[in-house]
Computed example of a mutant assay.
Amino acid sequence: MKQIFFFFTANKNRAILFAVLWTLLILVACFIPGREVPDVRIPFIDKWVHFVLFGGFSFLWLCTRKRAVPCTGLVVFLASVALGYGVELIQGSGITSGRSYDMYDVYADSVGGLLGVLLFFLWRRTIPGEIR
């Protein structure tokens, strides 16, 4: 797992590229029409997808910072909550066909965003001091 952390934190340009691409992935995945979303028969799979997408969002955006401090983590967490809520508002507005507002998706986005922040700081704490 440390290799993942080193991969993103060793090169800030790479981290920015992946964070932007991940954000675009979230937007594309959340705005495709509902009829094009595969029907998977796993309980709560949509919530797990939201959880992972927004956890990755928080983690990757923190990797773009030269010096991430807890305040930065709070800002990134709030950005993930805002993005998740904004996506749900747009889905509920009827712009995307077959999609609707789901507050439980916002909760999954928020928990994922929080755990992405916590994972970042936990992993950063376990690596050698010169990379912190």
Rank of each mutant, 00 (worst) to 15 (best):
A108P: 10
F77E: 07
V69G: 02
I45H: 09
G86F: 06
V49A: 07
F77Y: 14
M103T: 13
V81E: 01
V111D: 02
S93L: 01
C71T: 13
S93A: 06
D102A: 13
A108E: 12
G55E: 14
S58E: 10
G112W: 00
V75E: 09
F54E: 13
Y85Q: 03
C63S: 15
F54D: 06
A79I: 01
S97P: 10
M103F: 15
S100G: 14
V87E: 09
V49L: 10
V52I: 12
G84C: 04
A68D: 12
V87D: 00
T96L: 13
V49P: 07
T72W: 14
S58K: 09
D46V: 00
Y85F: 15
S58C: 10
C71W: 12
P43F: 01
G84I: 06
F59M: 12
I42L: 15
I90N: 02
R67V: 14
R67Y: 08
R67P: 00
G84F: 02
H50L: 02
F77W: 13
Y101N: 09
Y107S: 11
V81S: 02
Y85M: 11
G86N: 07
Y101V: 07
I90M: 10
C63D: 07
I45A: 04
S93P: 09
T96F: 14
D102N: 15
M103N: 08
V52W: 06
V76P: 05
V106I: 15
T64W: 01
A79E: 05
F44I: 03
V111C: 05
V111M: 08
V111Q: 08
V111P: 05
F44H: 15
S93C: 13
A68F: 00
Y85S: 06
W61P: 11
V106G: 09
F54S: 11
V76Y: 00
H50S: 07
W48Q: 07
V75R: 07
V87P: 06
G84Q: 11
S100A: 15
L74N: 08
T72Q: 03
V69H: 13
D102E: 15
W48N: 00
Y85P: 01
G92D: 11
F54N: 12
R67K: 15
L89A: 02
F44A: 13
L53F: 14
A68L: 07
F59Q: 10
G94Q: 07
S97K: 13
A108G: 08
G84N: 03
E88D: 04
W48S: 13
T72I: 06
S110C: 03
L53C: 06
V87W: 03
S58I: 08
V52C: 11
F57A: 10
L53S: 06
G73H: 04
G55I: 03
V87L: 00
Y107E: 11
L74R: 01
G84K: 05
G86S: 08
S93F: 04
G84D: 02
F51M: 12
H50F: 03
F44S: 11
V87G: 02
L89Y: 09
G94L: 02
E88C: 08
F77T: 03
S100C: 04
V87N: 04
Y101P: 00
P43V: 03
P43S: 13
L74C: 04
D102G: 08
C71E: 12
P70D: 05
V49F: 01
A82S: 12
H50M: 10
S93W: 00
L60Q: 09
